[in-house]
Design a protein around this nucleic acid. Structure first.
Lengths: 229, 229
DNA sequence: CACGAAGATATTGCCTGTATATTGGTGTAC
DNA sequence: GTACACCAATATACAGGCAATATCTTCGTG
C-alpha cells in the first residue's frame, strides 16, 4: 500500500508500528508547524503537502482537518489552507484558560500521584535546575515535556489531559518563536521545579499556588515579547 | 452532487445553506447520539450509517472521526465503531474540569459582557424560573442552551468556548439519560439564574461562587443517579 | 472432544477520479 | 476609463473502489 510513497517522501518521521498514515501525517505536519519549519501565514494545499511529504491526499486531508480543529491551520473551503498566525492577544486568552486547567492538574496530581510518579517528578525538578544552570535549551525542553506528561498522567483526568495537550501545543509554537529573546531559563526552571516538588510532596495548596506562579511567569514572558517582533 | 442521497436519506436535518455534507453528517450523528436515539454501546459501521443517513462514506467518515476525538464514539480499526457508554465516574471527572472552565467563563463574562448581553441574561434568568415553575422541560433546555451561548460569547475567549462546548456535549447525554429520575428543575433554574444575574450585574466574585454552586448541584445530580440504572 | 489452521466475512484505511466552488484575469459594452 | 460578464485555473468536497486486516466459521486432525 505504501508504494511510491516511501520513495517520493521526504522528511517523514519514522513510522511507529501500528500507526496509520493519517497519524504519521498529523505528527509530521504538527511538528513542522510548531517548530516554525512551516512559518505562520504560509499558504499550502492538500496536493502540495501530499507530494511534499509523500503521502496520499486522504491522510493529509484528515491530518489537516484535525490541525484545523486545533487552530493550527485555517481551511478556507475551495480556496486553500493557511498556517495560523501567532498573535500575542490570542496567546494571552489561551493562557487565561491554561491557568485554570493547569492549576486543576497540579492539584489533582498532588492528590493522586503514585509513589513512582512522585519520585519521577523530584528527579525532573532537579534535572531542570541543572539544565538551566548549564544553559542547556534542549535538555530543558525535553524535561519540560516529560514534566507535563508525568503531571497530566498523575492527575488521572483524561479530559484535562487532552485539553492541556491541545493548549500546550499552541503555546509551544509561541515559545519557539520568542524564547531566545525573552526567556529567563533559570527562573522558568525554578518555577517548574516548585510545582513538581509540591506535587511530589502531596501538598495540594502549594501545588496550586506554584502552578499559578508558573503561569504568571509565562504570561509575563508573553507580554515581554510585545514589540519585539 | 446530492442526487440519490436526498431520496435515500432519512432523518437528515434541514441542510443549512453553505453547510458541507460533512458538517450535516456531524450534526445529525451528534444529535442522535446525544439524545440517545442511538443508544450507548451500539455498534455501527461507516457503511451502515452512510446508507441510513443517505450520505456517502466520506462525510460520514469525517464526522465519525470528529465524534471520536470528542469521545462520543470509539473507532476500533478494522472492527467497527462503538457509541461510547455513559459512566458515572467518567462524568465526575468531566465535571471536575467543567467546574474550572465554567468558573472562568462566568468571571470573564461578568467582566466583559456588553450591555445587550447583560440584558439578555436577565431575561434568561427570569425565563428559566418561569419554565421551572411551569414544569416545562423543553423550555428549560432551550433556555439552558441560550444561557450557555450568551455566557460563553460574553467571556470573549474562543479556547474556553470550544472547551465548554465539548464538555457540555458530553454532559448533555448524561442529563438526557437521567433527568427524569433525579433532576430538581426548580433548584437547577434558581442556580442558573443566580449565575446569570451575577454576570448581568458584573459582580465577578459572585459569578464565580454561583458557578461553583451550580456545578455542585450538577455533581450531586450525577451522584444521585448511582444505583438508579 | 479439544484445538488449530484455513477460508469466509465484514470493516476500516487509503487512493483516485469527478463535481463543484471561488477567484482573478480578460474582453467588451457603455 | 470603468464596470460587468464570462472563462480559465485551481482548490477542496465528495464518491466509490480496491487493499489490508481483524474476527468468525468451518473443517480437519490429534
Amino acid at each position: 500500500m505504501v508504494r511510491q510513497a516511501a520513495a517520493r517522501g521526504r522528511r517523514r518521521p519514522r513510522p511507529e508500528p501500528g500507526e496509520s498514515l493519517t497519524e504519521q501525517a498529523y505528527r509530521a505536519l504538527e511538528e513542522q508547524i510548531v517548530t516554525l519549519e512551516i512559518p505562520p501565514g504560509t499558504v499550502v494545499s492538500e496536493a502540495i503537502l501530499a507530494s511534499r511529504l509523500g503521502f496520499g491526499r486522504t491522510p493529509i486531508r484528515e491530518a489537516l482537518w484535525r490541525l484545523a480543529r486545533e487552530r493550527l491551520v485555517t481551511i478556507i473551503p475551495h480556496r486553500g489552507i493557511i498556517v495560523s498566525e501567532i498573535n500575542i492577544k490570542t496567546q494571552l486568552r489561551l493562557l487565561e484558560l491554561r491557568r485554570e486547567i493547569e492549576r486543576l492538574v497540579a492539584a489533582q496530581a498532588a492528590r493522586r500521584a503514585s509513589e513512582a510518579e512522585r519520585k519521577q517528578l523530584e528527579g525532573i525538578a532537579g534535572g531542570m535546575e541543572a539544565a538551566a544552570a548549564a544553559n542547556d535549551d534542549r535538555a530543558f525542553m525535553r524535561l519540560d515535556r516529560e514534566y507535563n506528561e508525568v503531571t497530566v498522567a498523575a492527575a488521572r483526568n483524561e479530559f484535562a489531559a487532552s485539553a492541556v495537550a491541545l493548549l500546550q501545543g499552541l503555546s509551544r509554537r509561541f515559545w519557539y518563536l520568542h524564547y531566545k529573546e525573552a526567556a529567563d531559563m533559570p527562573l522558568a526552571a525554578r518555577l517548574h521545579a516548585e510545582v513538581a516538588r509540591a506535587i511530589a510532596r502531596g501538598e495540594v495548596d502549594a501545588a496550586r499556588n506554584a502552578s499559578d506562579r508558573l503561569v504568571d511567569y509565562i504570561e509575563e514572558f508573553a507580554r515581554a515579547t510585545v514589540g519585539l517582533d
